[in-house]
Nucleic acid binder design. Structure first.
Lengths: 224, 224
DNA sequence: GGATGTGAATGCATTCACAGCA
DNA sequence: TGCTGTGAATGCATTCACATCC
């Protein structure tokens, strides 16, 4: 089976397996069964086994999966056994918060440059780095062969910046602007839109007939 | 067909249709076909029609969908035709950035309280609001009948805070901590984990045999 | 002609269930 | 006995293709 036709949802779950396993490292647990791993994440045991089996035989019948072993296999599969250089475009509140958020940089990613279109921000320090002007983007990305970018700019400029990134050689974009960024095939985009996610929650509440807007407080509380 | 068994991916796409349509409002466009709407988001026309048809007949044969009409239908379906009260837990960098990010609060959501466990943060101003201590969470959420929460706390406390939120009556949580938050059935969780998303990009790059880590710059650049 | 809405057909992902190994 | 890996069976989502309406 070729890598290309492994189900996308399966690849996505791999990241959660890895996260869960890494949390386990601080405990004294050495092995884990597909059942245990699945239950902690809300999946079935068959699902876990099938997902992992797409990539090889990592388990030990009668034993389960060895935690260390599976972690390193998953890192290899996901490509985070090597370090990826990442640039950030947009040094505003969100950009800063994202980079500062603890655990953002789980091993495997290193921020190598930060850009902003606002000249008043250029030159400001940003962790170990200084904010660079957009005019430096092309040459920096090219020179350092950067392949990944985080896009935290206002929605109006998101598409234009994405175009520049792709032109400079970036092949994966993590986009925080609320727009569907168009990129040529061969380039991947992952998007995070808070409004979209809240809407999904709102929809799910409607299913339970949970009432929105706070009416004047009474005393009862109901749930499905 | 009952609301409960509409495909999750379809509901998710609804949010993107809505986002796209809202962007269209600033133009003079009055109607749009399933083909046009789909193309702008990378879906087929049949997909768009099927998704919308799960909820009713919103289109006009020979014409397409009227933008205004479809927007209000989608808001109704997603539950954002009413205002949902939202609380934020965690007034750190991320929490502040999330709330400040323009467009975060697309109509339909209103932040009514902010909590933080760090006493030095309590009392600080946060937009129109003041940061409250965690000890106020229960009574505030209960009194205002809040059903949605944004969780931007360190991973160690995420599960405990989620438990408190659920106990207070929250039924939907948007979680930014890198952990799989367990909640009782009847409560929904949406999660955002930056490391997970970068890993997904990393995996997709591997498919194209794009090399990670910057070796000393040469002159060639390749792409699939 | 130009578009929707929708049953039928296809294709994809998950689950079952069991052979096989430690 | 306990657990994996995996073909076969099921179930879900997408796409096709066409009757229908403006």
């Amino acid at each position: 089976m070729k890598f290309e036709d492994i189900p996308t949802p399966a690849v996505h779950r791999l990241s959660f397996y890895l996260r869960q396993l890494e949390a386990l490292k601080s405990t004294d647990r050495r092995t884990i069964s597909s059942k245990q791993l699945g239950e902690s994440l809300g999946y079935t045991d068959a699902q876990v086994r099938k997902d992992l089996a797409y990539f090889g035989q990592f388990g030990h019948p009668g034993i389960g999966y060895r935690v260390d072993e599976l972690i390193s296999q998953l890192r290899k599969i996901l490509g985070t056994d090597k370090i990826w250089s990442v640039v950030l475009v947009g040094a505003g509140n969100l950009g800063r918060a994202l980079m500062a958020y603890r655990g953002f940089l789980r091993k495997g990613f290193q921020l190598v440059a930060v850009f902003d279109a606002d000249n008043s921000k250029v030159g400001q320090s940003f962790g170990d780095l200084n904010v660079l002007p957009m005019s430096d983007l092309q040459k920096t990305v090219l020179a350092q062969r950067v392949r990944l970018a985080v896009l935290a700019v206002p929605v109006e400029s998101a598409q234009a910046v994405a175009d520049q990134l792709v032109a400079a050689g970036v092949r994966g974009i993590l986009n925080f602007a609320p727009i569907s960024v168009a990129v040529p095939s061969g380039t991947a985009v992952q998007s995070v839109d808070l409004a979209v996610q809240l809407e999904q929650l709102s929809y799910q509440m409607n299913l339970d007939a949970t009432e929105p807007v706070s009416p004047p407080p009474a005393d009862a509380a109901s749930a499905g």
